[in-house]
């Protein structure tokens, strides 16, 4: 059996197990609705225009946030990665900022920016910028000096060595950072929509399901969709990373 089919079998097995345990009463159905019920809601939702618009809003916010995070993270990482003095100077500041969870900033952002799309984009950027920043710094910090020396020995000047050796070396690492950031940004956007009660979006929809007690099917369907979206994005990026950076084995390891 092909790997993909096996993976799918596992996934289906999970949903089947969920169905059976709920139907058999092992898990009470007020805890969690059976998988079939969630699946029905899920299919209905895919034909619901308003819901789909919400999903589009979420994905749009995600895309913008990821773009901004790349725009900030990569240049900043390049700068910090190639100027060691700058890196060690900013270390404490970064190490202090990094563990502040984006959710903790929600109250702050709500009073300053409000709960519109700006708010979720801002917070998603904050959450997503770290992996990109760290992987970029790392990629440039860890480059093997022998590699650069051999490039220089072939007659390349500093700038050429940077373009033709350092960048290709760093690219897969940066890409891994972007991939991790993509998952984080999506989770962040949906979480902010949920906690800050945004006007539209997938997170908002799940929130409504949670508030109208007994609409757990709505909650679960939205959550499953969020999970599938995150998983699809991640798999797509893993796939394209493998194709783009055939020479590197970082993606291979990072996928696990």
């Amino acid at each position: 059996m092909r790997t993909f089919a096996k993976g799918l079998t596992g996934l289906l097995g999970f949903f089947l197990l969920w169905e059976i345990t709920v139907q058999a009463g092992v898990l009470p159905d007020y805890w969690v609705p059976p998988a079939s019920e969630v699946a029905t809601t899920f299919v209905e939702l895919l034909g619901d225009r308003e819901f789909l618009l919400g999903v589009v809003a979420t994905l749009l916010a995600w895309l913008i946030a990821l773009g901004v995070a790349i725009g900030i993270g990569v240049p900043a990482g390049l700068l910090l990665g190639s100027v060691p003095a700058l890196q060690s100077a900013s270390r404490a500041l970064i190490e202090f900022l990094r563990p502040i969870p984006a959710v903790a900033l929600i109250p702050l952002v709500m009073v300053t920016i409000g709960s519109g799309p700006d708010a979720k984009i801002t917070l998603a950027v904050y959450a997503a910028v770290w992996p990109i920043l760290f992987n970029t710094i790392y990629a440039f910090g860890e480059i093997d000096p022998v590699l650069l020396d051999s490039a220089r020995a072939t007659g390349a000047n500093r700038r050429q060595a940077l373009t033709w050796v350092a960048l290709p070396h760093a690219a897969p690492f940066i890409f891994t950072g972007v991939r991790v950031a993509a998952s984080i940004a999506l989770i962040a956007v949906i979480s902010v929509e949920y906690i800050a009660a945004s006007e539209v979006g997938l997170g908002r929809y799940i929130l409504e399901g949670g508030m109208n007690n007994g609409h757990l099917d709505q909650v679960m369907a939205g959550t499953v969709l969020a999970g599938l979206a995150g998983w699809a994005i991640n798999s797509a990026l893993v796939g394209s990373g493998k194709r783009l950076f055939r020479w590197a084995d970082t993606e291979e390891r990072a996928t696990r």
């Binding site: 998952s183 989770i187 959550t223 999970g227 995150g230």
Partner: peptide, 23 residues
């Protein structure tokens, strides 16, 4: 082979939205 995809999926689920279920 069988659980890898499932775990990647579960990892992609935003835990925040499961809060109603956990509650």
């Amino acid at each position: 082979d069988y659980c890898g995809t499932l775990i990647s999926f579960l990892r992609s689920v935003p835990p925040v939205t499961l809060m109603p279920a956990f509650m």
